[in-house]
């Protein structure tokens, strides 16, 4: 398998300014985060200063600037989720993982994020781990789900 790099995925874009955000999205998709090196690449290509690219990319919640963990956890903070205890779920995750939202655990297994709304409000509260959405969460259900992920890692390690 050919590993896609930021440089290779940027090739298909033209040098128009409107490509800035799609380029950042593509880079994050293949590399997991936006590194200073990829900002430099985009800057050279679009002839926009790195400074300005940081300005744009930090404005949007989607972009992260540190490598993600093995599993990315997103806690939905939509209104329906809030009303049904989403904050409790986030508190519990912060406690169990020992990190705050926006951080990655020391062993690199999990990163924890809040997301404005995943659009599954009728099944609130929800969280997303990697691409899978878990609905109608409770603190107890969360403990079960987390266990699944920590265990599966241990199993593959053996």
């Amino acid at each position: 398998m050919v590993v896609k790099t930021a440089a290779s995925v940027l090739e298909k874009f033209s040098t128009r300014r409107e490509n800035l955000i799609p380029m950042l999205q593509k880079v994050q998709e293949v590399e997991g985060f936006i590194s200073p090196e990829s900002i430099k690449l985009i800057s050279d290509k679009l002839r926009i200063s790195e400074n300005e690219i940081y300005g744009v990319s930090t404005f949007y919640a989607q972009f992260r600037f540190t490598p993600p963990g093995e599993h990315s956890i997103y806690v939905c903070m939509g209104t329906a989720c809030h009303v049904k205890g989403g904050q409790q779920i986030l508190n519990m995750l912060e406690y169990e993982l020992g990190i705050k939202e926006g951080q990655t655990t020391e062993d690199g297994r999990f990163d924890l994020n809040r997301v404005a709304c995943l659009g599954c409000c009728a099944l609130a509260p929800v969280i997303k781990i990697d691409d899978k959405i878990y609905s109608q969460m409770s603190v107890l259900k969360l403990m079960d789900v987390l266990e699944k992920y920590t265990q599966s890692v241990e199993v593959t390690d053996e």
Binding site: M77, T79, A80, A116, C117, G119, C121, A122
Partner: peptide, 11 residues
Amino acid sequence: DEGDPGAFMNR
């Protein structure tokens, strides 16, 4: 850009 948290009609 259905940004309202708690709304998913457009989705």
